[in-house]
Structures are given as structure tokens and as C-alpha cells.
Measured scan of single mutants.
Amino acid sequence: MDVFMKGLSKAKEGVVAAAEKTKQGVAEAAGKTKEGVLYVGSKTKEGVVHGVATVAEKTKEQVTNVGGAVVTGVTAVAQKTVEGAGSIAAATGFVKKDQLGKNEEGAPQEGILEDMPVDPDNEAYEMPSEEGYQDYEPEA
């Protein structure tokens, strides 16, 4: 019985440690998101679009440190934060509304985080759909 109880105690310690790591990862992701939003706020009209992409990228980098179902929630929060940063930029006159959601080359930025393969159960990952990809044929 002692062996059984000791095993359960060790398992509990492992769960607590994993929860603490997840909590730490979420806190880091939130900190990076805040950094990115402050970065966007300090940019001029020309830099705002690039700044919004930076927020998304920093958040995406930190999301990889967070495991399990938390990833889905962090990704949703990050996307809403990026959308909010863009709205703030438009409201303050840093950028025109028609410039939001495009990178410096004018290509749409939507789907940055949505296409990231995420499995809350950590069982399997699927690649994003290939609808947006084109076949590449090298020139002879």
C-alpha cells in the first residue's frame, strides 16, 4: 500500500510541476504579447503594419512553449490582441483601416495563427491545408 501511495504522490508532483510550467509559459506569452502591443503603439504610420505582424510573430513563438489545451486559448487571445492593436492603430490615425491585415508588401496577414497546427491532446499534428499553395516548377 505504501508503494501505491508513494507512486500516487510522485504522479501528483509531476502534474503540479507540469501545471506550473504551463502557467509560466502562458505568463511569458502574455508578456511578449504586451511587449508587441507597446511596440505597435510606438510606431509611426509606416511601421504600424509591420508592428502588428511582430506582435503576432512574438506571440506565436511563445505559444510553442505552452502545451496542451492552453495553446488553443493563448492563440485565440493573441489573435484578438493583434486585431485590437490594429483597431487602436486605425482609431489613433497611425494607419488607414484599409491597410490593416496586410503586410508591407500588401499581402493579407489573416491566418497567421489560424494555420498553425495545434492539437490540445498532444496526440497528432496535421499540416495546414494546401489550398493556398501553388506547385513550383523550376525553369529549365
Rank of each mutant, 00 (worst) to 15 (best):
V37P: 01
G68K: 11
P117T: 11
E46D: 12
G73F: 15
K34Y: 13
T44A: 04
E46R: 01
P108Q: 14
T33K: 02
F94G: 13
T75D: 03
V40S: 00
D121G: 13
Q79I: 08
K102T: 14
D119T: 15
A27I: 04
Y125L: 09
S129A: 11
G132K: 10
V70G: 02
Q134G: 09
D115W: 09
K43A: 07
T75Y: 14
V77K: 03
K12R: 03
E130F: 09
S9P: 00
A124N: 15
V66F: 12
Y39M: 02
V118N: 14
K23Q: 01
V82Y: 07
E130Q: 12
A69M: 11
S42P: 01
E126K: 09
T75M: 09
E35M: 12
T64I: 07
G73S: 06
A18H: 03
T22G: 07
A90Y: 14
M116Y: 15
F4K: 01
D135M: 14
A19G: 14
V48F: 06
K80F: 13
D98W: 14
K21A: 07
P108V: 13
K32I: 10
S9H: 04
P108L: 11
A85C: 10
G47A: 15
G14C: 12
V66Q: 01
V55S: 01
S9D: 10
F4W: 07
V15K: 00
N122T: 03
D121E: 15
S87H: 15
N65K: 08
Q134I: 05
K6S: 03
K32A: 06
E137Q: 10
K23T: 05
A140M: 11
F94P: 08
V3H: 15
A29F: 01
N65R: 05
M127G: 12
G7P: 02
E126T: 13
G36P: 02
E130H: 13
K32L: 09
T64M: 15
V70L: 15
P120F: 08
G84P: 02
D135Y: 14
D135S: 11
D135R: 04
E20D: 06
K21L: 13
G132E: 08
A91S: 05
V15D: 00
A30T: 10
G106W: 11
Q62G: 01
Y125T: 12
K34F: 11
Q109T: 14
F94I: 08
N103F: 11
Q109P: 15
N103D: 05
G68A: 00
K43C: 11
L38E: 04
V37F: 06
D121C: 04
F94V: 05
D135A: 02
K43I: 13
V16A: 10
I88Q: 03
V66G: 02
K58Q: 05
I88Y: 14
E105V: 07
K10M: 02
M5L: 04
L100Q: 05
D121V: 09
E110W: 12
A76M: 04
E61P: 03
V70R: 01
A78Y: 14
V52T: 00
P117G: 12
V55E: 00
K34Q: 04
E28P: 01
V55M: 12
E139W: 09
V71S: 03
E20T: 14
A27H: 05
T75L: 14
E61R: 02
G84A: 03
T72F: 00
E28W: 11
T59F: 12
V82W: 01
T54F: 14
V82G: 05
